[in-house]
């Protein structure tokens, strides 16, 4: 971007280590990534179990669960920014049932969780589809054998369904972790990193540093840290989750 530049060795990385705002961005990003991954997996599994039957109503439900996934994150963010404002739909609905709402996008102790909820809402459909595919690949004779042995529903889930869902959990966890660490669109549309710097994520910080403050070198060093973070976490998570995958 600039015709001239100075070689400054690892100064940018040294500055990064001391940069409190970047540290905060890493914390926010990790918080989003961990909660989104856990909750989306949980809700995705629940919804997959709910719609893993034959019939038009279940097919329609699958479509409903998957619809948010095909929407652009920008559009999702825009829709939720209207829902989450102080006089938005959510607070009005809460008012009807006698509950006090809050300022979902301005309350600093809540706003990160508002963003997380929006991302979970969107990514849950992906988890549902992956879990559904995995569920349907489990041989039915295993359930028949369990029935003959006198297993109840919980025992069937614990000893057959859950262990055989491991490949699905691996895929969902890795994909969600990677996409959550890169989270940008929803944050920009909902809060643009605010109020103040409360919801600034690493990707947002990189874009602002590079294209607002014109500090491409410093932004690049942040991007390298993000790359390493995603790389290391992905390898660790895949290694750990692969260990618990089983075949009957």
């Amino acid at each position: 971007m600039y015709p001239d530049f100075n070689w400054i060795g690892i100064d940018n990385y040294k500055d990064l280590a001391k940069d409190g705002e970047f540290g905060h961005a890493i914390y926010v990003t990790c918080l989003i990534a961990i909660i989104v991954t856990l909750v989306s997996n949980g809700l995705g599994l629940l919804s997959a179990l709910l719609v893993n039957f034959k019939g038009w109503i279940y097919n329609a439900s699958r479509t409903v669960f998957f619809t948010p996934q095909v929407l652009s994150p920008i559009i999702v963010g825009f829709i939720w920014s209207i829902i989450l404002t102080d006089d938005g739909v959510l607070n009005k609905l809460l008012g009807y049932i006698g509950l006090d709402g809050t300022s979902w996008l301005a309350n600093t102790s809540i706003v990160v969780y508002s963003i997380i909820a929006v991302i979970v809402w969107q990514s849950m459909g992906f988890c549902t589809v992956v879990f559904l595919a995995t569920l349907q690949s489990i041989p039915s004779d295993l359930y028949e054998a369990a029935k003959i042995d006198g297993c109840n529903q919980w025992q069937k889930f614990k000893h057959i369904t859950f262990p055989l869902l491991a490949p699905g959990i691996t895929i969902n966890t890795v994909m969600l972790l990677i996409s959550s660490f890169k989270v940008f669109d929803q944050v920009v549309v909902l809060t643009n990193g605010g109020p103040g710097t409360t919801t600034e994520t690493i990707s947002l910080k990189i874009i602002n540093m590079g294209f607002n403050e014109n500090q491409m070198g410093y932004a690049s060093s942040m991007a390298v840290v993000l790359f390493l973070l995603i790389g290391v976490i992905s390898v660790v998570v895949v290694t750990l989750l692969k260990r618990r995958e089983v075949e009957y």
Partner: peptide
């Protein structure tokens, strides 16, 4: 290459 991308700064941009 990726790591060295962060080893420069824009000279005298302002």
């Amino acid at each position: 290459t990726a790591a060295l991308a962060g080893c420069g700064n824009s000279s005298s941009s302002n």
